[in-house]
Amino acid sequence: MSFELLATLAKTGLWMALLLQVTPIMVWVERRGSAMIQDRLGPNRVGPLGLFQALADAVKFMCKEDITPAEADKFLHRLAPLLALVPALTTFVVIPFGPDVTAFGRQVPLVVAGAETGVLLLLALASLGVYSLVMAGYSSNNKYSLLGAIRASAQMISYELALTLAVVAVLLPVGSFELSEVVRYQQGQFLGWIPKWNALPQFVGFLVFVVAAFAETNRLPFDLPEAESELVAGYHTEYSSMKFALFFMGEYMGMATLSCLAATLYLGGWHLPFLSYSGPWWWVAAQGMGVLVGKATLFLLFFVWVRWTFPRFRFDQLMRLGWKVLLPLAVLNLIAVAALTVGGVL
C-alpha cells in the first residue's frame, strides 16, 4: 500500500471519528443549551451532567420499532435516510486542517483531498442533501411529508444560490478553488493585530453565507420543512427508529461541515494569528484541527442560540427573503468584490 493512500485513510479516519461524535455531543449541547436559555435543567440524570444522555438516546433509537407505512414507496423510503448522510460524510474531504507537514520524510498536506476544484466539489456534494428530503417526503405517502418535501426543495434551491454567490466572492481575490489557498490568503494581519480574515472585508458576504447556511441546514428560523407545529414533523413524519436517527445525524453533521466551511472561508480556517505551527507533524495536525474545530464550535453554538431565540418564518416570507433580499445582496457583494479585486485593493 502506498504511503499516500495510508495518509489519506488516516486523515479520513480522523475526520470520521470527529464527525460521528458531533451528533451526540451536539444533541447534548442543544438540550442543555436550550435548557439554560429556557430557565430549566435539561437532561442531567444519565452520567455526569447528563453527558451520556446521547448514548441512552442511541440505544432507544435502535430498540424502537421501525415502521414503514403500508402505502409507502419502500425502496425510496429506505434510501432517503441513507442519502441524508452522504453530503454530511463526504464534504469534509476538501476542508484543510493545517499547513503541509513533513511526516516520515514526506510532504503531506493536511487535507484529505487537495482537489483543485475543492469548493466546487463541496457545493456539488452539499446540494445532494435536498434529494434525501424530497425522497423522504415523496415516498412516505403522507400529505404532511409531501408538503415538507416541497418546502425543502424550494427552500434549498433558493438559498443555495445566495450561498454559492457568497462563496464565489470569497474565491475571487484568492484566484483558486482550493480551500488551502483560501486559508493561505487569510494569513497575516491588518495594522499588525487585526487578523486578515475574510469575515472583515467581506462582511456582507459573510452575513449572506451565515443566513443561507441556516436555511441550508433547515434550522430555526428556517426549519419549515419539518415545522413541527404546522406539518407535524414535515418530511420525516413517517420515519421512526434508526431511520429517523439518520436524518437527525445528517442534520447535525451537515451543520458541523457547514460550520467548518464557514470557519475556513471567513475565519481563517486552521490559521490563528501568532500561532506559528512548529514542532513534530502530529503536533501541527492536532493544533490545526483544534483551531478549526474551535472556530466551528463557535458557529455551532451560534446555531443553537439562534434556534432558541427566534420564531419561524412563513413560507412566502422565506422565499421573499431568499430571492428578494439575500440573492441581490449576494450579487451586489460579488460585483463589489470583483471591482475591488480588479482594482487591486483586495
Partner: peptide
C-alpha cells in the same frame, strides 16, 4: 410556540 418561538413558552 406555534410560530416556532419555543423559549417564550417556558418564560
Amino acid at each position: 410556540v406555534d410560530a416556532g418561538a419555543l423559549t417564550n413558552f417556558w418564560y
